[in-house]
């Protein structure tokens, strides 16, 4: 039974979330014929191809390590940033927070194009690197993709971290200092453990979307850094031999893998007494 008040939300989820996913699932079991897709009987061709896996090796590896590296870098940059904002006073805090969300005022694609220009060999950054003897171009390399990913996903790390740091009672730091803790000890023993829900939420919001990211590797990787996202995109929109069932099967498998990895963690997180 669904309560009356829950109907709009349920309907919204059904139309914009469940329906598209169901569609993808259905497509993943279709068979390609010269006349088009054949939906009945369901076939496992796409999954068989995906699990044979040769074609996946590069993209899976790239997606996994780039997602992990992006998460780690966002955390390394985002934590001090979030802490600074959370401890800033009134007007400063709002100004800094505004700067964090400012990039969202522009389309992600447009911003990534901007990086495309910034990273091109003829741009000042490229010239400076060459002058220093670094010959590897940023554009079309994993380093360039990583840079774009960190740039694009940093706010998703900073915002949940800020939220969890901002609600910490400042008296706790006084209490730690009063009991003899240096500022660093107070951070490590009080601030850091109390911000664990924020770290978990931020990491999730960065890691999962980066796994399926295709805009950044497409634009900044120049086809040299294939990721799962670009592989799936190719199956639907690619100019060479698109394969919808294979793309759909990859999407379903990615979803299942992420789900299997996250569900137990989410449940554990809720039990933690300082969550909520």
């Amino acid at each position: 039974m669904i309560k009356r008040a829950a109907w709009p939300a349920t309907a919204w989820l059904a139309v914009f979330f469940v329906l598209p996913i169901a569609l993808i699932a259905v497509i993943s079991f279709a068979r390609r014929t010269p006349a088009g897709l054949d939906y009945w009987p369901p076939a496992l061709d796409a999954y068989r191809r995906a699990l044979e896996g040769v074609i996946l090796r590069g993209p899976v590896w790239n997606s996994a390590w780039l997602a992990a590296a992006t998460t780690a870098l966002c955390l390394a940059i985002g934590y001090p940033l979030a802490l600074t904002i959370a401890r800033a006073r009134g007007a400063w805090r709002h100004a800094l927070l505004f700067l964090v969300v400012l990039p969202f005022f522009t389309n992600f694609l447009v911003r990534t194009y901007a990086w495309f220009i910034l990273l091109s060999p003829e741009a000042p950054l490229g010239r400076a690197l060459r002058a220093c003897g670094v010959e590897t171009p940023l554009l079309g390399s994993a380093a360039g993709v990583l840079l774009g990913l960190v740039y694009g996903y940093l706010p998703f790390m900073v915002l949940p971290l800020y939220a969890s740091l901002e609600k910490q009672d400042p008296a706790l730091l006084d209490a730690a200092a009063d009991l003899g803790a240096s500022p660093w000890q107070a951070f490590r023993r009080v601030t850091l453990p109390l911000s664990r829900p924020g770290i978990a939420a931020g990491s999730l919001l960065v890691f999962v979307p980066v796994l399926g990211e295709f805009v950044v590797p497409r634009l900044l990787g120049g086809g040299k850094v294939p990721m799962l996202g670009t592989l799936i995109e190719d199956q639907f929109l690619g100019k060479v031999r698109p394969n919808w069932p294979f793309g759909a099967a990859l999407a379903v498998l990615l979803m299942l893998a992420v789900g299997a990895a996250l569900v137990p963690r989410l449940r554990g997180g809720k039990d933690a007494p300082w969550a909520a």
Partner: peptide, 16 residues
């Protein structure tokens, strides 16, 4: 504060 031989019981306890 961390080097003063003085401890404070906070008004709202400030327990961790």
């Amino acid at each position: 504060p961390q080097r003063r031989d003085v401890n404070l019981v906070f008004q709202n306890y400030a327990l961790f």
